[in-house]
């Protein structure tokens, strides 16, 4: 197996390569408005770090968010087109799952309840709750920090959204950022155990903003 993972669901643009045993390549850049410029060079660096060529890859996986749509699509379409060009399967993973996995590993596998919050802009967060083994206990949702279940908000909450709204999340904890290497570990493990991976489809959770056509506007004053 030679797996390439990438995530563009936040201001962190990252890619990593996993050979079935361990992470063999990793690269990261920061830039909230520059996913389109940063991702391809980050992938090239992760591949170079692994000493691999694109044609060596056997699987590709993109973080499907939730996250700001424009950046999210850069990762998802990159993974889809690479899969098409290389003739390999394309997977998706909920980006919040990666942060939950990171927190679980960092806690020495001790955490049995936590939530992950990411920045959803418009003063809202994307939130998902996890139980024992960092297994999802809710679907990802978009919420105002004040509307998060009080027990969840008071518990351990990781991810960029928790640190953006410190008053709403008194139990905020590390990690703040998604780590590409941890993502590669998690996806490789799921691939090897037949665990849950998603289709490479963005988790939008919001409809496009658009107003249906109203009556035509008059130009003559009435």
């Amino acid at each position: 197996m030679l797996l390439l993972v990438m995530d563009t669901s936040s201001a962190v643009v990252t890619a990593a390569v996993h050979d079935g045993d361990t992470v063999v390549g990793h690269a990261v850049e920061h830039g909230a408005q520059a996913h389109g410029e940063l991702l391809a060079p980050v992938i090239e660096r992760a591949l170079a770090d692994a000493g691999a060529r694109p044609s060596d890859l056997t699987d590709v996986c993109a973080g499907v968010g939730p996250g700001p749509f424009t950046g999210l699509r850069v990762g998802v379409v990159t993974a889809r087109v690479m899969g098409e060009a290389l003739g390999i399967p394309v997977h998706g993973i909920c980006s919040l799952d990666v942060l939950a996995f990171q927190a679980f590993v960092e806690s020495g596998f001790a955490l049995d309840r936590l939530a992950v919050a990411a920045d959803a802009r418009r003063k809202e967060v994307y939130l998902r709750v996890y139980g024992r083994g960092a297994r999802p206990a809710s679907d990802p949702a978009v919420l105002k920090p004040a509307d998060v279940d009080a027990e969840v908000a008071a518990g351990v909450v990781v991810g960029p959204g928790a640190w953006l709204y410190p008053d709403a999340f008194p139990g905020r904890a590390e990690p703040r950022e998604l780590d590409g290497a941890a993502m590669a570990e998690l996806v490789a493990a799921r691939l090897q155990t037949g665990g849950d991976l998603l289709p490479p489809e963005p988790l939008y959770l919001r409809r496009p903003d658009a107003v249906e056509n109203a009556q035509r506007k008059r130009v003559t004053p009435s």
């Binding site: 044609s55 749509f69 990159t78 060009a85």
Partner: peptide, 20 residues
């Protein structure tokens, strides 16, 4: 349109990168 252009540019980069 900025967001629309990005989908195409990312796709083209993914193709060029994959094919060398």
């Amino acid at each position: 349109l900025a967001g629309a252009l990005l989908v195409g540019v990312a796709s083209a980069k993914a193709l060029a990168l994959s094919l060398g």
